[in-house]
Structure formats: C-alpha cells, structure tokens
Amino acid sequence: MPDAYHLLLFVLAGWLLNVTPGPDVLYIVTNSLRGGWKSGVVAGLGITAGCFVHIFAAALGMGALLADSETAFTVLKWIGAAYLLWIGGKILLARAAPATTDLQAAALSRPLPSSKEIFLGGFWTNVLNPKVVLFFLAFLPQFISPETTGKTSVFLALGVLFNVNSIPVNAGWAIAAAWMARRPVVQRGMHWLDKLAGSMFIVFGVRLALVDRPGA
C-alpha cells in the first residue's frame, strides 16, 4: 500500500473526482429532487455498486480488454449511450406534475420509482459506461509503487477505498439536492428542472456515443 502521504493524496484526489458533475451526479441529484434525500442516497449506493464491478473487472483484466479491443469498447459504449438516452427521453416525456408549491403533493400525483428501481438505475448507469473501468485502470496504478508485491491486491484495496470514500460525497449531493427541493422557487420550477435533467442525460449519452477508445 502507499505510504500515509500518498494515501492522503489518493483520498483527496478521489473526493475531488467524485465532486465533479457527470452522469452519476446528475442521477443522484435528479432522484433527490423528485423523491427526497433517501432516493438520492439509494441512487448513490447503486452507482457505488456499479463501481465495484468496474474495479474487479479492471483487476481481472477486463479493463485491458476494453482498452485493447475496439469492438468490445464500442459495443459497451453504445449500450451505455443508449441507456443514458433512454433515461433522458423517459424524463423528458414524463407527464408534468400539477402546478403546486407542495412538493410532496406533487410527488404523490406522479408515481415515483421504487428504491429497487432507483438502485438498479444507478447501477446500470455506471456499469454500462466503459470510461469508468478505463479510469480505474489509468488512475489507481499511479499510487502503486513499481516495487510493490501483490499489485493486484493493492489495486483492489485502493479501488475499494476509492469507492467507500465516494459514499459520503454522493450522500452530500443527495442531501443538498433534497434541501434545494424544499425551496419554493425550486418547487415552482420542478417541471423545468426535470426537462433540464432529461436534456443533460441525452447530452451525456451523445457524448459517450462519440467518445473514442483511448489510444485508438
């Protein structure tokens, strides 16, 4: 394992990366705005579960396969892009809740997804993004000394640490979004926030579809 100094740098770098907005953060915020902080936390846990898949895949060599195989990367990329586009379209086409300043009443007027659906949505949003496994493949080895024995075990340990450290950051996004949802100005603009979120998911989907395999 890295020494205390480099381990601290690793933790800080992980937090900064998790704070950066992207499809995962958008998914957490969207669910918190619509269903409260608990929905956002569940969304974050689903994303964390997806990250574990990428960590173990990278450790077992799947990351190297995606980095080397244009076909494998492209197939997963298009599946992930289609999934993000589907989420965005679903949000955009959803019927607007009746105009009201009572967010709970608005939520009751439009069925919200179950915790299981939210969790699985976060899971697949993360798992179907090939850039995540390539990120771990590029990021984690920077904190593993060439002289380290048992590099795979250290890689897994750092991946687990990165993932565990992301939980409070994701929870922070969920709580902040839920707090914002209680503001009257936000409640009045929920319909437009839904449209914005749906549009952003579509943008992320298009960006993922256009991304090239690193080194291609």
Score class of each variant (00 low, 15 high):
residue 4 A to R: 10
residue 4 A to W: 13
residue 4 A to E: 15
residue 5 Y to L: 15
residue 7 L to E: 08
residue 15 W to V: 09
residue 18 N to S: 14
residue 21 P to H: 01
residue 27 Y to S: 12
residue 30 T to F: 06
residue 30 T to E: 15
residue 31 N to P: 05
residue 33 L to K: 09
residue 37 W to C: 01
residue 39 S to I: 13
residue 41 V to W: 03
residue 41 V to G: 04
residue 42 V to L: 07
residue 43 A to R: 04
residue 44 G to E: 13
residue 45 L to E: 06
residue 48 T to Y: 06
residue 49 A to K: 04
residue 53 V to L: 13
residue 53 V to G: 05
residue 53 V to K: 02
residue 55 I to W: 07
residue 57 A to S: 10
residue 58 A to G: 07
residue 59 A to E: 06
residue 63 G to F: 07
residue 70 E to V: 12
residue 73 F to K: 00
residue 74 T to F: 00
residue 78 W to Q: 04
residue 79 I to G: 04
residue 79 I to F: 07
residue 80 G to T: 07
residue 82 A to H: 04
residue 82 A to I: 06
residue 84 L to H: 04
residue 84 L to T: 06
residue 86 W to Q: 03
residue 91 I to D: 10
residue 93 L to P: 11
residue 97 A to S: 07
residue 103 L to V: 15
residue 103 L to Y: 12
residue 110 R to G: 09
residue 111 P to N: 02
residue 114 S to N: 08
residue 119 F to T: 13
residue 122 G to N: 09
residue 123 F to S: 08
residue 123 F to A: 04
residue 123 F to Q: 13
residue 124 W to L: 07
residue 126 N to K: 01
residue 127 V to R: 00
residue 129 N to T: 09
residue 129 N to M: 05
residue 130 P to I: 00
residue 131 K to N: 03
residue 132 V to W: 00
residue 132 V to Q: 02
residue 132 V to H: 01
residue 133 V to C: 02
residue 136 F to P: 05
residue 137 L to P: 03
residue 137 L to G: 01
residue 138 A to L: 04
residue 139 F to T: 06
residue 145 S to W: 11
residue 146 P to R: 05
residue 146 P to L: 09
residue 146 P to Y: 07
residue 149 T to K: 01
residue 151 K to D: 11
residue 152 T to W: 03
residue 153 S to D: 15
residue 153 S to Y: 11
residue 155 F to N: 10
residue 155 F to I: 07
residue 159 G to Q: 14
residue 159 G to H: 14
residue 160 V to Q: 01
residue 160 V to W: 09
residue 160 V to L: 09
residue 161 L to Y: 10
residue 161 L to G: 11
residue 164 V to P: 09
residue 166 S to H: 01
residue 168 P to M: 04
residue 168 P to N: 12
residue 169 V to H: 06
residue 171 A to H: 12
residue 172 G to P: 06
residue 173 W to R: 03
residue 174 A to Y: 03
residue 174 A to N: 05
residue 175 I to K: 06
residue 176 A to D: 11
residue 176 A to N: 07
residue 178 A to H: 06
residue 181 A to M: 09
residue 182 R to C: 08
residue 182 R to M: 10
residue 183 R to M: 14
residue 185 V to T: 13
residue 189 G to D: 14
residue 190 M to L: 12
residue 190 M to V: 05
residue 192 W to M: 08
residue 197 A to C: 13
residue 197 A to I: 08
residue 197 A to P: 09
residue 197 A to L: 01
residue 198 G to L: 02
residue 199 S to T: 13
residue 201 F to L: 05
residue 201 F to T: 07
residue 203 V to W: 03
residue 207 R to E: 05
residue 209 A to C: 08
residue 211 V to W: 03
residue 214 P to S: 03
residue 214 P to Y: 02
